[in-house]
């Protein structure tokens, strides 16, 4: 368990976001700064953050919509609204009045501490099963790339992004996501081949761990 509190800061104003980030970091917090509600929802659902500070008026998805969505999904960690207005929406843990005062932040960091995380249990035989599936998967990925079967390559990279991450290979998961994204954006085949080469290297490393 880490003793650093991890915080999501959602604020679309560049200047305010940087200022708030510095203020929170001065309290020892690790800050993930995002510029809209959609990014905040996505990050919150990773369950890697202890507190969410949310501006209300943001593009794409505003702070109230993002909070409502998270609460609907059972997200039970603290979510604070940051606003100069009076916020009455149900679901916020509290409202921090803008401009934020140092005393308010101090109180926030006193009230909340890092949440102990629940470790994912991975049975050795399951890990073995995952690792044993990789050579065949690599063959399938290469074959799809040679045949320029992009939909199937996208499906396989999507699956791999999820499973590699769950089994403790975040770099392979991230690379598989990049490959998937490149395929979705119909990137040139050289870009796709580059991601696949890098992914193959990471899978090779995993198999020889």
């Amino acid at each position: 368990m880490t003793d650093t509190i991890r915080l999501i800061l959602a604020e679309d104003d560049d200047f305010l976001r940087q200022l708030l980030q510095m203020q929170c970091e001065a309290h020892g917090a690790e800050v993930a700064a995002v510029t809209n509600g959609e990014e905040a929802v996505s990050l919150a659902l990773s369950y890697e953050y202890d507190v969410l500070l949310m501006d209300i008026q943001m593009p794409v998805c505003d702070g109230i919509q993002a909070m409502t969505l998270l609460r609907q999904l059972g997200y039970d960690r603290p979510i604070y609204a940051m606003s100069a207005d009076n916020i009455t929406a149900d679901g916020f843990t509290g409202v921090l009045q803008k401009p934020l005062q140092e005393a308010d932040l101090q109180q926030l960091f006193q009230q909340h501490s890092p949440k102990p995380s629940v470790a994912l249990v991975i049975a050795p035989e399951l890990m073995q099963q995952f690792l044993q599936s990789l050579p065949q998967l690599q063959q399938q990925l290469d074959h799809c790339c040679q045949q320029q079967n992009w939909p199937e390559l996208q499906r396989l990279s999507h699956k791999l992004a999820g499973s590699a991450g769950s089994f403790g290979y975040p770099a392979a998961s991230e690379r598989a996501k990049q490959l998937q994204l490149a395929l979705m954006q119909q990137a040139p085949s050289t870009v796709i081949e580059h991601h696949l080469t890098q992914l193959n290297k990471l899978l090779q490393e995993a198999m020889h761990d």
């Binding site: 996505s42 659902l45 990773s46 369950y47 890697e48 949440k115 995380s117 629940v118 470790a119 994912l120 249990v121 992004a161 999820g162 499973s163 590699a164 991450g165 769950s166 975040p170 998961s173």
Partner: peptide, 9 residues
């Protein structure tokens, strides 16, 4: 959202 973690489950 995959990958799975203990906290999400």
């Amino acid at each position: 959202a995959k990958p799975f973690t203990g906290d999400k489950i």
